[in-house]
Nucleic acid binder design. Structure first.
Length: 117
DNA sequence: CACATGACTGACT
DNA sequence: AAGTCAGCCATGT
């Protein structure tokens, strides 16, 4: 593979996927938290981009556990069907109200805080 | 090359 | 507390 960069396959994307897969069930995190953990605190949008590209992944990605810093399901529109994100979260015991995660501060899972010390 | 868009965030009002 | 504005970075037109 001479072409290390195939659009998808960048280390950044892979690292994002790795962190997302590490999110325990019943927990949620934010794009900024992942970006900051990867050393790209100002590239939170790039994390969202990685999620958008996750559709090409063969392995399932718990993207429903990734929300914005306000705990709002900003990415629900990008799922197979609007509302799927909410259902998936509720299946894990997360309470959703008005497309927003309840007890977000409690359910928040920060990789920088949970993984690295 | 310039402008607009987007699964974001922080600061300001 | 809720709404608005600006900064950031990659992609699309």
């Amino acid at each position: 593979m001479s072409q290390a960069s195939k659009t998808t396959g960048n280390d950044f994307f892979e690292q994002v996927y790795a962190v997302v897969r590490l999110i325990p069930a019943g927990r949620v995190t934010s794009y900024g938290a992942i970006a900051r953990y990867l050393g790209a605190a100002r590239s939170a949008r790039m994390v969202g981009w990685a999620m958008n590209a996750s559709h090409s992944l063969e392995d399932p990605l718990p993207a429903h556990r990734v929300v914005n810093r306000n705990g709002m399901l900003s990415g629900k529109m990008h799922f197979e069907h609007p509302g799927a994100m909410r259902e998936l979260l509720e299946q894990e015991g997360i309470e959703i109200e008005n497309d927003k995660v309840q007890n977000f501060s409690v359910l928040f899972w920060d990789p920088q805080r949970e993984l690295t010390l």
